[in-house]
Amino acid sequence: MKYNKFIESSLRGTLSFLRASVFSDGYALEKGFLQSIDPRINLLTVIIFLVTALFTRNMVVVLCLYGVCLALASLSRINLGFFLKRTWIFIPLFSLFIAIPALFNIITPGDELAGFTIGGVSLAITRQGLSGAALFVARVITSVSFVVLLSLTTRHFALLKVLRVFRIPKVFVMVLGISYRYIYLFIEIIENTYLAIKSRAGGEIPRKQGRHIVAGNIASLWLRSYRMNEAVYGAMVARGYDGEPVLANDFKTKTRDWVWLSLVLVAVLVLFYFSAQGRFGSI
């Protein structure tokens, strides 16, 4: 009989990944550089870096930004190995598969660097294709790294509140917050349900039965979430909610926050200036 180690390992893997990546705020509680900056300023500076990475056509500027990102991660007491692993997981997903076709002359014509034939079709990697793909991948790496850095160094609830400061509708922010809160609860329910099944069925469950159990549990979880949705709404109404939530805004900016924002602005302007002057070459 075939056993469902696949279900068990997938379930464990998914749940532990969610716990570690979405619900862990260990780094956000560290006393590092970015953690000491007002979350609003943090978000603003990350947006400035992202916009710079997006609009520059110079590889050196993008690499400088990536260097700044790694330096900030280090100053914020984030383990660099962990940070690189965390960011580079997404790179193939977001960029490599898109960038590879751009290397070739059929997408980006230009000076040929290397040519070969596949199934009678002759292809060539072009210099323009290579530099375009490299710039694209570098932009993605830098952007993803800044976003991951922001999410690691800012507590989840602070990020939500920052969204409110930037005029994102309250209901949207509230829904995000509630989703985050209850995804955790449902993870706990899934884990406990799995343990209950394991305690009754023993160590291993035949695959077919396992599939039935998983399908049944998906349905049961959906029903539970539906019922909970009504109950949570009732709890909100009971405390005066009438469609317009009010969230507390208790952020306070300090001098160092403004100094940091000014530094970032000056650095970005300098990068743009040197880039425009051609000080970084033509790459």
Partner: peptide
């Protein structure tokens, strides 16, 4: 059910 906000505060 009752504790639906991101933090205790």
């Amino acid at each position: 059910i009752q504790l639906f906000c991101p933090t205790v505060k």
